[in-house]
């Protein structure tokens, strides 16, 4: 079936079976790499995107059910001029990541957190990201990056 999604501020007509999870539509139909497949069952957060600013695990929610939502992916965080988002800059500044596979999901979860809380405490950051898994052990750098971004966005 064909339906229209609002992705990164643009309407996108996509053709997919109606039960196709958003993740596959983003990756395969729209060529957006940010959201990653990690588990397909909502356990790891690698596929996290924003739906009306709220974190959404795109791996198991059918895309066709999201036509009324504003979807934001990692790619949508960048400014129109291509400038990196404060979170992306902060992740680079802290060299937060090893393999980097979990990082897009981390950045999106962090973006959602900063959307509701401009200056989260370290404990709040850890709690908000607790269900986003990282196997490389980049956790502390990720927390520092989010703190740095919060600071820069607040000033």
């Amino acid at each position: 079936m064909a339906f229209t999604l609002n992705v990164n501020g643009k309407p996108q007509v996509v053709e997919a079976e109606e039960d196709t999870p958003l993740l596959y539509v983003l990756r395969d139909e729209l060529g957006l790499n940010g959201a990653k497949y990690g588990c397909g069952v909502g356990q790891c957060g690698a596929c996290t995107v924003l739906s009306d600013g709220v974190p959404l695990r795109s791996c198991f929610v059918p895309a066709a059910s999201l036509t009324a939502r504003k979807i934001t992916t990692l790619e949508g965080l960048r400014g129109a001029d291509g400038k990196l988002h404060a979170l992306q800059q902060a992740f680079l500044a802290e060299q937060a990541g090893q393999c980097g596979y979990c990082i897009p999901g981390m950045i999106m979860a962090a973006a959602a957190l900063l959307g509701v809380k401009a200056r989260p405490s370290e404990a709040e950051i850890r709690a908000a990201l607790d269900a986003n898994l990282c196997r490389c052990g980049s956790h502390n750098r990720i927390v520092r990056a989010i703190q740095r971004a919060a600071q820069e966005m607040g000033t």
Partner: peptide, 20 residues
């Protein structure tokens, strides 16, 4: 700084998972 990190935090095609 790591050479591979910018591509990884922007979603460029760097993982084999991203190759199409």
């Amino acid at each position: 700084p790591r050479r591979d990190l910018p591509a990884k935090i922007t979603g460029e095609e760097i993982f084999v998972q991203d190759l199409r």
